[in-house]
Structure formats: structure tokens, C-alpha cells
Amino acid sequence: MTKHANPATAVSAGAILPGIRWSLSRDLRIALRSRAELGVQLLFYIIVVSLFPLATTPERNLLATMGPGVLWVAALLASLLSLPRLFASDYADGTLEQIALSPYPLEALVSGKILAHWLTTGLPVALLAPLLGVQYAMDAESGFVLAAALLVGTPILSLLGAIGAALTLGLRAGGSLLALLILPLYVPVLIFGAGSVDAVRAGLGATANLSLLGAGLLVAVVGAPFAATAAVRIALD
């Protein structure tokens, strides 16, 4: 508990942005060093999306109805699958403890990590979505809205996921437990995200859905890094 009162973190409000930048560039460098792993995660996303028509029907109308939901569920799973990478290896080799003692505030470092996680998982997933939408008879407008919704929504997944990843650090049943903790929290994102394309198809326009996702993102950006940092501290104590 005494770590909270670390004088270095108390006075260094000006160290927030450098802290984010430092941990962001560090995590990005590590991620780029293991490009193969990132590629496998994207392949997982693509394969899951491609399995659904085989399991149901190639009928175009049904595919168009299912498409946004399938792509969103696959995005959720891809995010979930990559979450252990966020803290686990740093925790295992003791780096996380070292990082926590650095002069940067831990909140900033955790935020940088979350941003790096989104850039390496959420962003590619969002950019790939319109292309995969073609498999689901999605028109250009729907594809565009889907990508926009994923761009706004996947950061929320990384933010909320970071809390779960930190809470399950070093636990035996880590992976499946993480899914149980985090997937229920993902529900609103899933609903507003997949709903945005439905709304376009229903002629309602996606503004309402995208604004709600944006509001959710704001709330998550303000709250989640603190909750995730608290969880990291609990794991380190």
C-alpha cells in the first residue's frame, strides 16, 4: 500500500505524456519484434469470420444480416486472445515491478501499454473489417460504418480488457477466467457496434450508435486506466 505514496509519482503530473510515450514506444517495439505473433492473431480473426458461413448458410440475405454481428464477435475474441500479452510477460520476468518503480506515473505507463495493445490488435482488425465484410455481402456504406464503429469500439475493448488482464495476472486459470470476467463487460460495445451497421441497413443512419460508442470510449478512457492501474498494483503487492 505504501507504494501509492511514492513521492516520485506524486509530483510528476508533468510526466504523464512522456510516460505514455515511453511505454507506448517500448511495447510497440516489442510487438514489432514478434510480428509473427501479430500475424497469427489477425489470421485467427479472419478464420473465425470465414467459418460462420460454412456453419450456417451461403445465402446472401442471411449473411448480410449476420455479418456485422459475426465480425464484431470475432473482433471481441481477437481482442480477448491478445490481452494476456498486455502485462503477462512483463509480470513473469519482473519487468512490470521495475516499470512500476520508474519515475513515470504507473497510470501513464499502463495507458501507453493499452494504446500499444489497441494499435497492434484493434486497429488492424478495424481496417480489415470492410474487406471481410465482402464475404458477408456487405455494401460499401455498411463496410465503411462497420470500420468506423470498430475504430471507436475496439479501444474500449482494449481499455476494459486491460482491467481483466491485470486482475488475472499470474493466476492459474488466467485465460478462461479472463474471458468470464471481460466478455460480459463487452456486451454494450458489441450491441452498439454491431447495431450501427444494422441501423444503416434499416435506413436509420449510424449516428446514434456511433455517438453512444464515442461516449462509451470517453468514459472508458477516463476510468479504465485507473482501474487497470489499481489492478496492476494489487497484483504487484
Binding site: L160, I163, L181, L185, A227, A231, I234, A235
Partner: peptide, 11 residues
């Protein structure tokens, strides 16, 4: 205690 506390507050 503390981990469940954080989780239930997020919940």
C-alpha cells in the same frame, strides 16, 4: 479482496 473489489466496482 482487492481484486474482487475492483472487479465489482467496474461491474
Amino acid at each position: 479482496d482487492r481484486a474482487c473489489g475492483v472487479l465489482s466496482l467496474v461491474g
